[in-house]
């Protein structure tokens, strides 16, 4: 699979007064063409910052992001705006990401107008086509955002993101603000679109159950660092990081009954330590070494990568690559 997006050693720190928040540290992640990569982690783990960095809405401190092998900085300066056509976004709040004073048709057509695609008649036809693609009826076109429900609005946002036929869609918690029943519909819509158009996605969520449903691969983030990356099935069935293990044990998607399932107990959340593994203060397996040594992501057989120093001790049948 050809690499579409490469995130290489990316760092981003936010400073306000004396406090520093390391939102992203040494992030390495690649997305292939037509691949769906899920990014999970609890709130504050830096997932959205990473999305903003990829979209060029924030500047990175160090490292590099490449799209189709070309540096992001160069792409953003390019007058032809090809990057803006090829990478689109769907955000968490469906209502807030639409301009309340514009009709739905206007909002969906906006990307086409900005990128000077088609004339007004062809754009009108395209808007109706897109509305049909996200299962909304034609009457929606003339409505305003305040007249639609959350699920319908998120469909509008998806239609808008599809308008330019992008190669990559960054989905930043696209279902978190929705009802559980609507969440399933939207996730299925994403799956359907992915199958039909073969578009690559970075799908961000704090909900492992949602991410598992849609992703080919999953990356787990904690306090600005990637803890584990691997194929969806491997991550969900045989995690090789205690944090992933804990996330899984707290998830509700497992089919076996809850009774036999053991929930992993974590220590209370404290401030992220300055040194060593950020998860060491909560990890049940942490030893003195974990609080001293800087973590490094290591590859294991079965294509999984884990940043846990003790991975091989904790998960005995793990073979190093």
């Amino acid at each position: 699979m050809a690499q579409l997006l490469q995130i290489l050693d990316v760092n981003k720190t936010f400073k306000s007064g004396n406090s520093k928040v390391k939102a992203c540290q040494e992030i390495n992640l690649t997305i292939g063409e037509g691949e769906v990569v899920g990014l999970v982690g609890e709130s504050g783990s830096g997932k959205s910052t990473l999305a903003n960095l990829v979209l060029g809405l924030e500047k990175l401190d160090s490292g590099s992001i490449k799209f189709e092998g070309v540096e992001l900085e160069k792409l953003l300066k390019d007058k032809s705006k090809s990057f803006r056509r090829e990478v689109q976004a769907v955000f968490q709040h469906p209502l807030l990401s639409l301009d309340s004073r514009k009709t739905i048709a206007w909002s969906i057509a906006e990307p086409l107008v900005i990128n000077k695609i088609g004339n007004s008649a062809s754009r009108k036809a395209r808007v109706l086509e897109l509305l049909a693609a996200v299962a909304l009826d034609e009457g929606t076109a003339s409505k305003y955002p305040s007249q639609l429900s959350g699920g319908q609005l998120q469909r509008v946002n998806i239609a808008r993101a599809l308008a330019l036929e992008p190669k990559l869609i960054i989905c930043d918690e696209p279902v978190s603000a929705l009802d559980v029943s609507v969440q399933a519909q939207i996730v299925n819509l994403f799956l359907d679109i992915q199958k039909r158009l073969g578009v690559a996605m970075l799908f961000i969520s704090h909900d492992l159950a949602v991410v598992r449903h849609i992703s080919d691969r999953i990356a787990v983030m904690y306090a600005g660092k990637i803890m584990e990356i691997g194929d969806t099935d491997d991550i969900c069935e045989s995690p090789i990081h205690p944090y992933t293990q804990a996330l899984l044990s707290a998830s509700t998607f497992t089919e076996e009954s809850d009774e036999g399932r053991e929930k992993l107990k974590l220590f209370r959340r404290e401030e992220v330590p300055q040194k060593g593994c950020p998860f060491s203060t909560r990890c049940p397996h942490a030893i003195a070494l974990c609080r001293e040594e800087e973590i490094k992501i290591q590859s294991f057989a079965s294509n999984q990568e884990s940043s846990c120093l003790r991975a091989q001790e904790i998960f005995p049948n793990l073979a190093k690559k």
Partner: peptide
């Protein structure tokens, strides 16, 4: 947010 959204479509 809709200003960010406008940015991302160019």
């Amino acid at each position: 947010l809709f200003i960010r959204a406008a940015r991302t479509v160019g």
